[in-house]
């Protein structure tokens, strides 16, 4: 049976941690998470990894495989040339807990602050498929936080203080475009979620395992909605004169 060489990050801090190398037998159709489980089951029961469904439905097993933010359960081993070392590291953007596990609780704090779904009082709950197709794309999100990990505003600039991150723009796009939602989150997006910090470099879209077009379908439409409210002089002028359109 062919063997893969897995270089896995081990440790409870990034400074003191190190890569350990394991040899793992490779079966057909195997994914990186299988290799990690093999290590746990046969070589090193203490190796920490977060996982749940192993089916790319829960978004728990996010890590960086050969430097690229990936779901381990979806990353097939046969993607890598035989004999090449495969490095597996924890997400860079979040504080390390141990080995491959990071503390992603910041994301849950952000989520709490988003103005929730608020249906129009007169809603009769009839709406058409074409009205919700956009929203359904956003609701495919499995909260793996790979987009949050790869986004340079969080990853390189560490602007967790002002920036909600792609995951939550996706969530807010789903709320804003819901045909029966009554709220307008433009101000929240601009002033509290830091939408303007996004420079649409699209890495979030590249890593999304659910293939949500985060930038084109969520972030840019939200940016345009913010423009309507805060940057378009003509629209703002009309709004001043005629009130809310």
């Amino acid at each position: 049976m062919p063997e893969a060489i897995m270089k896995v990050f081990r440790g409870i801090s990034r400074e003191a941690g190190e890569f350990k190398t394991y040899k793992v037998p490779v079966e057909e159709g195997m994914v990186v998470l299988d290799a990690i489980h093999y290590i746990q089951g046969f070589l090193d029961p203490e190796l920490s990894v977060r996982w749940n469904c192993k089916a790319a439905k829960c978004g728990s097993c996010s890590a960086e495989v050969n430097g690229y933010p990936s779901l381990m359960c979806k990353t097939r081993m046969d993607r890598f040339p035989e004999g090449q070392e495969i490095t597996v590291e924890p997400l860079k953007t979040f504080p390390l807990v141990k080995d491959l596990v990071t503390d992603v609780s910041w994301n849950y704090e952000v989520n709490k602050k988003i103005p929730p779904f608020t249906p129009k009082p007169d809603a009769d709950w009839t709406f058409m498929q074409e009205d919700i197709e956009r929203v359904q794309e956003f609701r495919k999100c499995i909260e793996c936080f790979l987009c949050q990990d790869v986004c340079h505003v969080l990853r390189d600039h560490d602007r967790k203080d002002v920036f909600a991150g792609p995951r939550f723009f996706v969530r807010m796009a789903g709320l804003e475009m819901h045909p029966l939602d009554a709220l307008n989150r433009a101000e929240f997006l601009k002033d509290h979620a830091g939408l303007g910090f996004c420079n649409i470099t699209k890495c979030c879209t590249e890593v999304c395992p659910e293939e949500i077009h985060i930038t084109d379908n969520a972030i840019i439409p939200l940016k345009e909605r913010v423009v309507d409210e805060f940057y378009d002089p003509v629209l703002m002028f009309f709004k001043k004169i005629f009130g809310k359109s």
Binding site: E64, G67, Y68, P69, K92, V150, H152, V153, R155, D156, H157, D158, R159, G194, G196, F197, C198, N199, T201, C203, E206, V207
Partner: peptide
């Protein structure tokens, strides 16, 4: 800023995006 995904960027920490 950034040159590619998950690759270190150019410039300091004065980033203000758009």
């Amino acid at each position: 800023d950034p040159p590619a995904c998950a690759v270190g960027h150019l410039g300091g920490d004065k980033y203000c995006g758009e």
